[in-house]
C-alpha cells in the first residue's frame, strides 16, 4: 500500500511539472520556447513514424553495435587481465591514458582514419564504452573471493568451467556497473558523432532543425533523446536485476545481519 502511495506521489509530481511547463509555455511567444502542445504535436508528426526509420533506426543501430563490441572486448579483456597481476601492470598505464581522453576528442581522428561513415561512429562509440566495462571487469575478476575459486579448484572443476560458472558470475555485478556508465557515454558519443559528421540520425536531426530554425522539431528531438535515454537505462537495469537477483539479496541480507 505504501508503495502505491509513493508511486502515486511520484506520478502526481511528474504530471504537475508537465502541467507547469504546459501553462508557462502556453502564452509563450518566445521563439526558442514554443508552447508544449506544439512540441508534442510535432513529436507525434515527426517520430510516429515519419522519421523513425530514417533517423532513429540508424542511431540505435550504431549505438547497439558500438556498445556490444565494447561489452565483448571489455569482458574478454577483463578476464584476461584480471587474472594476471603482471598483465595488469603492463597494460595499466596505457588503459589509464586512453580512458582519460574525452571520447568526443577522438571523433576528428576517427574521421581522418575511417571517414565519416558508420564504421567511424561505431568505432568511436566502442572506444568510449570499452574503458568503464574493462576496468570494472578487471576489478571484478581480480576481486573474486578466493574461497570460491579454491572451492571450485578443490572439486577439480576445469579452468573453462571455473571461468564460466564461478569467475564470470562473481564479477558480473561489477561488470554491470561498468555497463551502466558506458551506456550513458555511448548515447552522448552517438549524438555528438552524428552532429559532427552525419547525414542522418537523431543528433543530426536536432542540429539540422536548429540550423533551419525548426524549433518545435528541435525540441521534439531533445524530448525523444530523453525518452530513449530513460528507456535504455531502464532496460539495462531490468536485465541487471534479473541476472543479479542473488546479488541484491546477498547484499541486503548481509546488511540486515549487521
Amino acid at each position: 500500500m505504501r508503495r502505491v502511495t509513493a508511486a502515486a506521489i511520484e506520478l502526481a509530481m511528474a504530471l504537475a511539472l508537465l502541467a507547469v511547463w504546459w501553462i508557462w509555455s502556453a502564452g509563450s511567444d518566445s521563439f526558442y520556447f514554443p508552447p508544449l502542445p506544439d512540441i508534442l504535436a510535432t513529436f507525434g508528426d515527426t517520430w510516429v513514424f515519419a522519421r523513425a526509420g530514417s533517423d532513429v533506426v540508424p542511431s540505435l543501430a550504431r549505438l547497439t553495435a558500438g556498445f556490444s563490441i565494447a561489452v565483448v572486448i571489455g569482458i574478454g579483456g577483463g578476464i584476461l587481465l584480471g587474472g594476471s597481476r603482471t598483465a595488469r601492470g603492463a597494460v595499466g598505464p596505457i588503459v589509464e591514458f586512453l580512458r582519460a581522453i574525452p571520447p568526443p576528442a577522438l571523433i576528428p581522428a576517427g574521421i581522418v582514419a575511417l571517414g565519416i561513415g558508420d564504421v567511424m561512429k561505431v568505432f568511436i562509440i566502442a572506444m568510449a564504452c570499452i574503458w568503464p566495462i574493462l576496468l570494472n571487469a578487471i576489478d571484478g575478476v581480480a576481486g573474486v573471493e578466493t574461497t570460491l575459486v579454491e572451492t571450485a579448484r578443490s572439486y577439480g572443476i576445469r579452468r573453462r568451467d571455473r571461468l564460466r560458472f564461478v569467475i564470470l558470475p562473481a564479477a558480473l555485478p561489477q561488470i554491470f556497473a561498468g555497463m551502466r556508465i558506458s551506456l550513458s557515454v555511448a548515447i552522448i558519443v552517438m549524438v555528438v558523432s552524428e552532429m559532427v559528421a552525419s547525414s542522418n540520425g537523431i543528433g543530426f536531426f536536432i542540429l539540422q532543425s536548429q540550423r533551419s530554425f525548426a524549433i518545435a522539431e528541435m525540441w521534439s528531438g531533445i524530448l525523444l533523446l530523453g525518452l530513449l535515454g530513460y528507456a535504455l537505462n531502464r532496460g539495462l537495469t531490468r536485465i541487471e536485476r534479473r541476472m543479479l537477483h542473488w546479488h541484491r539479496a546477498t547484499r541486503s541480507s548481509a546488511l540486515a545481519r549487521t
Partner: peptide, 27 residues
C-alpha cells in the same frame, strides 16, 4: 572433498542449494 570454515564464501551465491551441491559433480 574440502569443507571450508567460511561457508558464506565457499557457497556460490548465484546457485541454489541443489546447484551448489551438483556443481562439483560436473567432473
Amino acid at each position: 572433498a574440502l569443507v571450508f570454515q567460511e561457508y558464506n564464501r565457499s557457497l556460490f551465491p548465484w546457485m541454489t542449494a541443489r546447484q551448489n551441491v551438483a556443481f562439483p559433480l560436473r567432473r
